[in-house]
Amino acid sequence: MIKGLYTGAAGMLAAQTQSEIIADNVANIRTPGYKAEESSNKAFPELLMMRTSTENEIPGNTVIGGMGTGVVVDQVTRMNVQGALQTTDLTTDLALTSEALFVVETPNGERYTRNGQFQLNAEGMLQTADGNPVLGEEGPIGPLSRDFSVDTNGAIYDGGVLVDQLRLVQIPNEELIREGQSLYTSNQAVQAWQGEPGIRQGFLEGSNVDLTGQMVKMITVMRAYEANQKVIQTQDSTLDKAVNEIGRIV
């Protein structure tokens, strides 16, 4: 009976974690280049329940069946699906149609992103909305004029003169470690992008979050949470009767 409390509590904790992941996806539905995350549960090992015979019965044990011991969120997977391209007509907005990532310089070192919503600072240096410099093969990109252009291969031209080449990298999806809304890092060695980058200037890659799908999942998760909550309440009520009624000495 006590095991039932732990099983129900484990289910509630798993549902809470899932709801937090869904809420994070919904909160970033307008973040350019954001990739939705999905969680999967793993069941704890089952217990084999057996009934031991009493003195008046034939000796031996009778198998009753298995009893689940709850679930836990096993892993969180990033859905590496291309988001829809949105036209902005801003020269500082860049979208990737490949699986490459931009490289930016942060106070904590180099980080990687799919968010191409860049801007020019007062000195004409290309940077992110948070003020992190965007890196090219020669380092921070700039100074640039407002009329600079970027071709599909990442070459940056200003006034018809080649200024720099966007630095792009490739990192397996399972090796990306998320930091904040749209920055990533990796514990593995990072390789330069080898394929066609497919850069589109004047476009942004939208978030790949499916709002309708996330709402359906949220409803399912909340119902699972409520079901496990009901299990705990039932177990608590049963324990109350066992202690205060059945075990009462008259």
Rank of each mutant, 00 (worst) to 15 (best):
E226N: 11
G70T: 04
N132A: 13
G198C: 07
R114M: 00
L211T: 09
R223K: 13
E55W: 07
V134D: 11
L120H: 01
M50W: 03
T212F: 07
Q214W: 00
V250L: 12
G109I: 00
Q214K: 05
Q188M: 13
I219C: 05
V26P: 02
E174R: 15
D130R: 15
N244G: 04
V221Y: 06
D164A: 02
E245Y: 03
Q229F: 03
M49P: 01
S40L: 11
I58L: 14
L13M: 14
R248W: 01
V163P: 00
G131R: 10
R30Q: 15
E99D: 15
M12G: 08
G213H: 09
V243P: 05
N80E: 12
T92E: 07
G247F: 03
A27M: 09
E138G: 10
L176C: 10
T17N: 14
I171D: 07
G139Y: 05
V73F: 00
G33R: 00
T92R: 09
M79C: 03
A27P: 09
L13K: 10
L47H: 10
E37M: 12
E196M: 11
L94V: 02
G83V: 03
T234G: 07
S186Y: 01
G83I: 01
L183S: 07
N61G: 14
I21E: 09
A23R: 06
V104I: 02
A23Y: 01
